[in-house]
Structures are given as structure tokens and as C-alpha cells.
Write a protein that binds this DNA or RNA. Structure first.
Lengths: 312, 312
DNA sequence: CTAATAGTGTCTTTTAGACAATATTAA
DNA sequence: TTAATATTGTCTAAAAGACACTATTAG
């Protein structure tokens, strides 16, 4: 829900002395990096396999958009959509531009969640990636809306903690967690593609301060350090939803049922919620319409829209 | 509390074909920016004026560290500490390096909060600033610990909303807010320095999506777009504290009284809290020591330390 | 003693959790 | 009718808000 654009009108008189300084100033005296914007674009989509039971709703899942690299490095591997930041734009604009190119979506929730610049992360050289979390309405997206021939695909994504080790000493805590990241292609027309990775999280609290580091300890099919970036994007998404929940609406179409909304919460938080309590909590944030779902093989549900006044 | 360091060990076999591709690849074919890390370093410090009343505790305030620019551009104006990212480090490391240089503090809470790259933000050229929020224990810091002769100073900082306009149409919300940012030097030995700025926040919800932009509409004494960056850092700090509160402990020394802790919350949230309720909420996060404050002109207070187990 | 701050007890209100029960649809 | 999902009601438990009250210190 937060797409940011910064404008600073700094009207300043530049003296002759300052102009001379500026004219002789050489930014490239220090080596400059390339700056990329990489985006973890999530949406909620139905899984491919339809249940044979006409009564059952089709299952939904968290999906992430990846692009198959057509060129070195990491040719043939799957990577987050992204691109280099250009001189006439800030990095939010780069991210939004890439997002529109890949999905056809003009606006979306877009939030800066990290910056990655480990010296060896890209064999082409010094490339820093500012990474973004984007959430889009799954019914709106059109993969490969852009004209370029990149192969883009939605993947069912899941991140689960497979080991969690905590050691508490006096005034000191060390936590090691391993996460299994798993991605499977959500497209029946093509062969099933499975990508996976193991990411280790190391948290150290010592001398009154916390240090967190991440490491890729296993990787199958994901380019660069993207397995780590994706894992952290998912953790960041969960955190955001836990702390307010309002961003979940960015995954919804204009009109949605409360079951759809609840489903989205459950998918992101990886835990079931009690329906009556969920509805009670959402009540002030939505407005009932007079439309109903139909042809669903069971009792139809009311469609709701956001109650935007309650958001501000 | 979160200082991040990323390590990705990507062990990959590079084919001859790929090596040839890499050898001929020229990153500088596209223009490259300079990347800077700028840090909003906050701490809570006593205000300069001591009350004449021996019973009263000295007042405390939120303080921000600024550096007087000794060179063009914006020579003589005050700016956030920061510096260019170097090739052997990621931008978190640049931020931490700058922080240590300026304050002598080795570890601190450090969080990426934004990226600024408007084309005209720096007259020297294309400089992108990844900005960080840092919180340090005010009793530990030593301004100008580094050897360079930069003039660094703590400023009492306050951000207040001076106008708030909301228009709700059908499916559309437009909000315009003006914030007054005010900074006054916290150093009795020098002349009183007052910096101020007006920053406008524009929020638009339209076509199911939110767009937020910020603009500097008045500025006295602050360099570049730093008035906006500072304002947003303060808003970001408030948001973090509202959503969990745990980061407030990063502003505390090892041992602190509950009144000190409550004071920090009140300063950041700009609102008074009810003491009994505050103590009840903090109880699981702290451990009582057997030390007490003394010589305070009134009933002494117990010192507490963090209960680190409750944080994880 | 007094002003100032430290610390406790308890009542009320709000919010969250659990679960039973009823309602409606397509086949 | 039935299996599936939609929707409501209500009881209980926990958390948050409000405020009266007692405790301790330096001067």
C-alpha cells in the first residue's frame, strides 16, 4: 500500500566559489557501484490442481514471480525480477518500472526491505541490490505483459523453519535457525519446476546488542543470493502482517469475500484463524456490498470492499 | 537492535563460455551512481538547562547527531553523518563504520529505512543515499571520537504536525500533512544553534492503491534533502516503537530505572503514559537488580536490566 | 514536614480466544 | 438430502485503561 516517491525542491543560490568547487569535483574518483532494484512480487493464486469435488473451493497459495535468466551469469537459473537503476529515476521508480514491465500492474504496494552488497554476490562486479517487497492482486496480473522475451513464471512458495537452536548464557543469546525455501511452478501447461534452498539465520545478542546474519547453505536453481533475499522477504511479509494486517488487502481484488481475506491471512501467517473472531476483527475495515458469489457448490458469500476511511 | 550482515557463499563452477561472457561484460556501459549511507543517530540526553529545584529530575529529550559541513556543497549547513559506500563493504557496514567514527559506539541498533535518489538531490551528481536509523545509549556516546576535525553536535529534535487535511471522496482519500521539524543544539558551551524545516506529506489512495510523497517546503540550516530524511526517520522510529517497543531498550544503558524507560517511550511517542500500566507491561521484559539510584532528592528507584530471554 | 518521584492494588472496559449453533447453496 | 462453506451468538480469558493509594528520600 505504500509506494513512495520523493521530491525535494531545494532552491539554493550557488555562489561562484561553490560552482568552481563543483566543476572540479570528480565523483568517479572513488569507484562507483551499479545499483539494481530487485523485487519480490507476491500474489495469492489458486493452485494448479483442481479438486474433483464440485463442492470444495479451489485451494490457494502464496505465489512469487521469478524470471528465468537467459544470459550469464546464472544462465538458466531463476531470479527475482529487477534491473539497474537509471539516472533519471530513484530506485523506487526503477522497482515500479520493472514491476509494471513484468506483470502489467501499474500500481502496487511497494516497500524497501533490504540492501545487499556482499563483495562476491555478482561475478560481473560490484552490484548492490536494493530489494523491495511488492504485493499485487492475483486476479489482475498478466505475466509477460511486457514485450521482452524473458520467461517469467509464478511459483508456489513456502518457507518453513526446519531447525531452531537457542543457547542462553548470562547476558548472551545465540540462535541458529534453518529455513527450507521451496518453490514449485504454478503452471500446468509446462513441466513442473521445483526450486529449493536452505537458508541459515544466525542471531547473536551480546554486549547489549543484536547482530543478525543470513547464509545460503544449500541452493538448487535460484540465481545469485536470491534464495536469501526471497527468504527474508517472506519473513518481512509475515512480520508486517503480524504487526498490522492492513497490507493483506493489497493482495485482494476490489471485491472479495471474508473467506478469501481470511485465507490470505492464514497463508501468510501459516496458521489457521478462528472465523468468528477474524470476522469480528475485520468488520470495521470492510463494507458489505449487495453482491454475492454464486455457482460455488455451497452457500454463497457476500462480497465486501475496503472501508478506506477506517484505514486513515 | 538489528544490525545485519549478509554473507552468501555461492559456490559455483564457472564454465569457459561464462568466463568469456564475464570478461567482455562492461558494467560501466550504463552510468553508475555513487552510493552513500546516511544515518539518523538518535539518543536520549538530558537537556542543557538544569532545573534549580534540587528535587526535580533533569529533563530529557530525543537528540539527533548532526555534522556541520566543512566543504561545498551546503558548506556551513548541518547534515546527517554518512559517507560513500566502499567496494569491500556492504552498505550496512558503511553505516556502522560511519557511526563508530562519529560516536565511538561499536555496536548499535541499525536499520535501513529508506533510499533517496531524486535526480537533483546533490549538485555533485548522481548520489543515491541509503538511509539508516540508529539508536544508541546516550551515556556511552562520545561525540567526535574519531580523529577528523568535523564539527559534530547533538541537537534536541522535535517533529510536530502543524496541519492535517483529509478529503474523502468515493473510493478515494487525499491527505496533506505539514510537519514542523525543529532542532536546537544541546551544548551549553557553544552558541545556541537552531535549525528548522517544514516537510509536507502527501498521501493519496486511489484505484485501490496508496501513494505517499514528501516534500521540503521550508528549510533553515539543513543540508541537501536531510530535513525530509530526518522527518521520515522520526516517523519511522515512532512507528517501530508503536508496533513493538522493544527497540526502546537500545536507547538505555545496561542498568536503568523504569522511570527512565517510560520517559524514553513518552518522548518518542510524544504522549504521557500511565505509570502503573506501563510497569505492568514492561514487567516481563526486565529483571530487577539490587542496586538503587541515590542522591536524587526524592525516593530512589530500583535499577533494572533487560530480561533477554523474554526478547527471543 | 514537604515536594518530588517510586511503586502497588484494584476496578472497569476492551479485545482476544474458543466453540456451539444456525443458514444457504448446487447437485 | 447432503457436504461444503457462510454467518451469528455467546461465554470466557486476557490485556489495556483509569485512578486511588502507599512508600521513600534529601533537604
Amino acid at each position: 500500500m505504500i509506494a513512495r516517491k520523493e521530491l525535494s525542491m531545494i532552491n539554493r543560490v550557488i555562489s561562484k566559489e561553490e560552482q568552481e568547487y563543483l566543476d572540479s569535483y570528480d565523483l568517479s574518483a572513488y569507484k562507483q557501484p551499479s545499483l539494481a532494484a530487485d523485487i519480490a512480487i507476491f500474489s495469492i493464486l489458486p493452485t494448479d490442481k483442481n479438486s474433483s469435488n464440485y463442492r470444495k473451493d479451489s485451494e490457494e497459495n502464496l505465489n512469487l514471480l521469478l524470471i528465468k535468466r537467459g544470459q550469464y551469469p546464472h544462465k538458466g537459473e531463476w531470479a527475482l525480477p529487477g534491473g539497474f537503476c537509471q539516472e533519471n529515476e530513484d530506485v523506487y521508480e526503477s522497482a515500479m518500472r520493472e514491476l509494471t514491465e513484468e506483470t502489467g500492474v501499474e500500481n502496487s504496494y511497494l516497500k524497501l526491505i533490504g540492501s545487499y552488497g556482499a563483495p562476491n554476490r555478482d561475478p560481473r562486479g560490484w552490484i548492490i541490490s536494493n530489494t523491495f517487497l511488492a504485493l499485487i492482486d492475483g486476479t489482475k496480473q498478466k505475466v509477460n505483459a511486457g514485450s521482452d522475451a524473458k520467461e517469467a513464471m509464478w511459483f508456489n512458495v513456502s518457507l518453513s523453519c526446519i531447525s531452531d537452536n537457542k543457547v542462553v548464557n548470562e547476558n548472551e543469546v545465540i540462535i541458529d535457525r534453518q529455513y527450507a525455501l521451496s518453490l514449485t511452478s504454478n503452471d500446468a501447461t509446462k513441466d513442473n519446476i521445483c526450486l529449493s534452498s536452505t537458508v541459515t539465520e544466525h542471531i547473536e545478542f551480546k554486549n547489549l546488542h543484536e547482530t543478525v546474519s543470513y547464509d545460503i547453505t544449500g541452493n538448487d536453481g535460484l540465481a545469485f543470493d536470491h534464495a536469501m533475499i526471497i527468504s527474508r522477504a517472506i519473513l518481512s511479509l509475515r512480520e508486517s502482517v503480524e504487526s498490522s494486517g492492513k497490507i493483506v488487502f493489497d493482495l485482494m481484488p476490489e471485491k472479495f469475500t471474508l473467506a478469501q481475506l481470511q485465507n490470505a491471512f492464514e497463508i501468510i501467517l501459516s496458521k489457521p484463524l478462528l472465523t468468528p473472531n477474524f470476522r469480528r476483527k475485520m468488520a470495521p475495515l470492510v463494507i458489505e456490498t449487495d453482491e454475492m458469489s454464486d455457482g460455488v457448490g455451497h452457500r454463497p458469500a457476500k462480497y465486501f470492499v475496503r472501508n478506506i476511511e477506517a484505514f486513515y
